Computed example of a mutant assay.
Amino acid sequence: MRWIHRRRGKIGDAPGQRAGATATEFAIVLPMFLLLVFACCDFARVIQFRQLVANAARVGATRAALNRFTEATEADWRSDVVDVMREELSNLASVDPADSVIGVSFRELPSGVRVVETEVTVPFRTVVQWPALPKEIQVHHHAEFHQFR
């Protein structure tokens, strides 16, 4: 008779008591686990988003630094740089190109070297509305290179 009690659990436990405890523990742990999973997903997304925005600014600054321009070709130069940055931002599936703010400028140093600057600002929207955190943040990156040649 002793082996029967060992298979059921402790002597005195009701047959479904352990299953009820497991269900209660699961009901307590599941919301915390899901919160952790969604927080990790949003954190990973914002890191990836930030990296792609930085890449777009650097790609634009590289293109701007490699191509010289004159007063007559400045508009085409700006257009080319902006197109390259928009193409890089197209790797972000969740980005509407109309939402992005792209800037291209340059300045002359006293030594005669031209420094080109690019700026990209794109809104990032979280998957979950987190308490005390905004639903949307502006991801911004600024890059500048000395113009070559």
Rank of each mutant, 00 (worst) to 15 (best):
D80H: 13
D99Y: 08
V139E: 06
V127D: 08
I11G: 14
R86A: 08
P123Q: 00
D42V: 14
H146F: 14
R125P: 05
E88V: 00
L36E: 08
V95S: 11
T24I: 05
V53G: 02
V37R: 04
R18H: 12
L34P: 06
R18E: 05
I11H: 10
M1H: 01
V127Q: 13
R45Y: 00
H141A: 09
C40I: 11
R18F: 15
R18N: 15
Q48L: 15
V59P: 03
T121R: 14
K135Y: 13
Q48D: 13
D42N: 07
C41H: 08
T22F: 13
F49D: 02
Q17Y: 12
I102Q: 02
L36V: 11
A19G: 10
I4C: 05
E144D: 06
E117R: 15
V116E: 01
F33L: 11
I137F: 01
C40E: 14
T24V: 15
H5L: 01
L52T: 09
V128E: 08
A39I: 14
N91P: 05
Q48C: 12
L92N: 03
F38E: 07
R50H: 13
C41W: 12
V29F: 12
L52V: 05
A23I: 13
P97C: 07
S105Y: 05
I4E: 04
A57Y: 11
L36W: 08
V139M: 04
E71C: 04
Q129T: 13
H5R: 15
D99V: 07
L52G: 05
L30W: 13
A21K: 06
V113G: 06
A23Q: 04
C41G: 03
D83R: 14
K135L: 05
E71S: 09
A65K: 03
H146D: 05
L30R: 09
H146C: 11
G20K: 00
V104H: 00
G103P: 09
D13P: 01
V84P: 05
A44V: 14
Q17F: 14
T126G: 10
E117P: 08
T126W: 10
I28F: 09
F26R: 01
W3L: 11
W130M: 02
M32F: 10
A23E: 03
Q48S: 11
L30K: 12
R7A: 08
R2N: 03
L66M: 09
R8H: 01
E71P: 10
E87M: 15
R45K: 15
R107A: 07
L109W: 10
V122L: 01
L66Q: 15
R58D: 12
S111R: 04
A56Y: 11
S111I: 04
C40V: 15
V59C: 08
V82S: 00
D96W: 09
H140I: 03
F33R: 12
K10H: 08
F26Y: 01
A57N: 07
A65H: 05
D42F: 06
E25K: 03
R7G: 00
R50E: 13
S90C: 00
A75H: 03
D96M: 02
V37N: 02
P110H: 03
